[in-house]
């Protein structure tokens, strides 16, 4: 006996994020509607579940910081739009937190399948906790997958946005545990001639391939 399953595809970094049109709590939206701004597309397993509720509140809490950075939020789960509406109303009623971002009602799993959010080892019916960061040109710049049991860390999501925007603005990379204001990494030289270990003000030369500098 054969069992038919939807085969998930996985988007790839630095390639265009797969386009979609979906029913959301804010009407029918396309990925391209978010063009010219950064977008965090994230999935949660199900409405009216405890970890997801804490995450929705946490996403709503960082929403003003995201807006300052030119970032929109778009949620998704395999639930109906009526369930989404009831849940966000319930969250506001019980906690006073208004959910300001749209949520995709992906009942046919079309978007979830396109973005590899359905991972049968975790659940055949629910999306895992995925996060996709898409830049203003529609390019997928980062993705994170968390299991059903573990709520995401909003500090890390904000840090990742700050790091990507800093890399784009200054043409640099960022070291482990980097925070805005910390030194950044100068791209390593790619030829022998480009190697430069001359001390310069504002630069920290650990070796020719690891040079940090302050951003001014």
């Amino acid at each position: 006996m054969s069992e038919q399953t939807q085969v998930s595809t996985f988007p790839r970094l630095n390639e265009p994020a797969p386009e979609f049109e979906a029913v959301t709590t804010h009407g029918v939206l396309r990925l391209s509607d978010f063009r010219d701004r950064w977008l965090i597309l994230f999935s949660h397993p199900a409405d009216f579940t405890p970890v997801c509720t804490t995450e929705f509140i946490a996403f709503a809490e960082i929403y003003p910081e995201l807006q300052k950075r030119g970032v929109d939020l778009l949620g998704l789960s395999i639930d109906s739009v009526y369930s989404h509406i009831a849940w966000v109303r319930n969250i506001e009623e019980k906690t006073g937190v208004k959910i300001p971002f749209p949520v995709i009602a992906d009942l046919n799993k079309e978007v979830a399948t396109l973005y590899g959010m359905i991972q049968p080892g975790a659940s055949k019916t629910e999306a895992v906790r995925a996060v996709f960061i898409i830049d203003p040109k529609g390019i997928l710049r980062a993705m994170i997958y968390y299991p059903l049991t573990t709520g995401r860390n909003m500090d890390e999501i904000l840090r990742l946005i700050d790091a990507l925007q800093t890399s784009d603005q200054y043409g640099v990379a960022t070291p482990a545990n980097w925070r805005p204001g910390d030194k950044v990494i100068v791209p390593a030289p790619k030829t022998v001639d480009a190697v430069d270990v001359t001390p310069k003000p504002g630069y920290e030369v650990i070796d020719w391939y690891l040079v940090k500098k302050e951003l001014k």
């Binding site: 804010h26 009407g27 029918v28 939206l29 396309r30 391209s32 509607d33 978010f34 010219d36 701004r37 929109d72 749209p102």
Partner: peptide
């Protein structure tokens, strides 16, 4: 679309969706 988003105070994605409809 960009000017309308500023004029009516709605997010750009909402305005684009409304304009399409």
């Amino acid at each position: 679309a960009e000017a309308l988003a500023a004029l009516v105070g709605l997010p750009l994605f909402r305005v684009r969706s409304s304009l399409r409809e």
